[in-house]
Design a protein around this nucleic acid. Sequence first.
DNA 1: CTGAAAGCGCTTACAG
DNA 2: CTGAAAGCGCTTACAG
Lengths: 347, 347
Amino acid sequence: MQVKIKDVAKLAGVSVTTVSRVLNGEKYVKDDLKEKVNRAIEELGYAPSQIARSLVRKKTNLIGVIVPDLTSSFYSTILSSIEEIASANDYNLLVCNINEDIDKEYKYLNVFQEMRVEGIIIMHEKINEQIRNFIHKINTPVIFSSVKPTDQNFISVIIDDYKAAYEATNYLIELGHESIGFIGGDMRDVTSGQNRYSGYRNAMAAADKKLIYEHIRFGDYKVKSGYDQMKELLNAGSPPTAVFVVSDDMAVGAMNCIRDHGLRVPEDISIMGFDGSQLTELVRPTLTSMEQPIHLMGKVTMEVLMKQIAGEAIPTDDVVLEHRLVVRESSRNRNAHALDSIKKHNK
Amino acid sequence: MQVKIKDVAKLAGVSVTTVSRVLNGEKYVKDDLKEKVNRAIEELGYAPSQIARSLVRKKTNLIGVIVPDLTSSFYSTILSSIEEIASANDYNLLVCNINEDIDKEYKYLNVFQEMRVEGIIIMHEKINEQIRNFIHKINTPVIFSSVKPTDQNFISVIIDDYKAAYEATNYLIELGHESIGFIGGDMRDVTSGQNRYSGYRNAMAAADKKLIYEHIRFGDYKVKSGYDQMKELLNAGSPPTAVFVVSDDMAVGAMNCIRDHGLRVPEDISIMGFDGSQLTELVRPTLTSMEQPIHLMGKVTMEVLMKQIAGEAIPTDDVVLEHRLVVRESSRNRNAHALDSIKKHNK
DNA sequence: CTGAAAGCGCTTACAG
DNA sequence: CTGAAAGCGCTTACAG
């Protein structure tokens, strides 16, 4: 039922070759023929089939993207940035939301292969053996964004999570805090689990602060787990005066928990988040956070992937972007706490 | 370089027809041949080209989705829900983020046509003449989700925005509020602009409350505009004791503004949001909101679209889902305000 | 500058 | 149960 190139050719009184030439903007078509063809196209409302075209050109202009959770502000911001660059370069995005479902990921990876996507972007690192093998087997460029799986053969666009966590912790130490709690991520995640935890521990060690294991908890990056872990932390004897939380979502949950327990941020407890999500400016008090360049991360991911596809200088190393500490209302000097206590005492 | 069906046939020592039969799970293939073929597929790591398959079957399994803003929690939740149903039915999503760029939408619509998507989902209603004509011209099913353009020929999955806004306003009236402000959306939007405003006005009229035009402002649904509009509203003489804000994002902005002005929610001003986004539970005080069934909306959108594609009973009318008032901490009885004032006075 | 023909990688009648 | 052949809607050498 769809009108095809043959119909256009017939109406214009030329060969399909000529129509194809006009379609692809080739020179060497006489103006009058070109005009006839364009009129026929217009009249029939013809749009060339990208499917047929892909088959012969062996180029689909498709990129497959695997997102862990579309409803997360962090990932959807990266995705939106990827989409912007893709669209500007005539690439289209096939989007898969896996929601913890590793089988769905494998299924989608197969779909990507069948669709002959030109490149694949993956935004999580919990890849299993099956997926690892699959990625190695297909000869489609794959790039990881915001995460780095253990496998050295994959390239990633990331920040230095260890260093960022170290600096975040150090900032709290410099504020004069002695006991600094930690709410980490999934320790199966190298990037956001292990590296951030190491950064915290080493910063504490370097400053001769001892780790209090009741002040160290692990969540799943989401708001609710931040709330739940903070609750455990508050119930564990004397709470810390500052907590470094490795995602802004969890940090917001932690702040809510503190508030619901009748304590105040930052007067009683300082909170430091991680990511630089929209939430930081939204909540009250606003959230101090070790920020990732989220938008840039998506942009660079897509740009590097396009280079890989073009066969240009394939980066052999990860692309490491700059993190940035943004101080807002949720953190303050330990001395301020002391003053507050005095004030309270004098009341 | 990609291995193709011919390679599999050669290795298995059968015809491509037989390979195709095995691939498509047809009966009438002897077990031993089937096994040979499967072994060859395995050995070569063969994955059939969906491109070639689409061309002959005239079926792409592709759905095009146009999202106004991927980073918005409202749209990304709908999208995630659409993706869930699509994926379960072997449909893949081509996602376009337009970010207010109407030209990008038109461009993408053309891409959708060239990609021969089987259906199109659009989540915004500011469609212009060009887009309207285009949608009418192509014979691909189109469905609108969460919005309803003026054009009667398109079908939408929505809530009754007028009624929802009426009830939201009425709830504030029942709480005893006399002066109820309003922060609306874009009046060029029928669904979320005009209908919600009408609901507010008629509810006020029905209760004999007079409209105070200094208490009526319009934003763009985003947090910042909620903040800005609330500021204007607070500066306009005596502020209202309650404000109905037509998006949760704006409502959060409004709450922050109130707080930054040294006033409290809900003690001084009650706030009612709209949408039922994740933010409602995240912010403190938690946000009372007239909620849309966001997740269901995405699900139903995709389900109805699949029916349209299958040519089954095409719905001639919009699908109207139920809204729901969820009361949280940001709203309270006007009497409570009075009591608060007295308390303050007696201090 | 223009067109006939081959081919992209599959599926599907058709014949056996 | 199996295979040769035509065809899906394009593009691209090739020849003129």
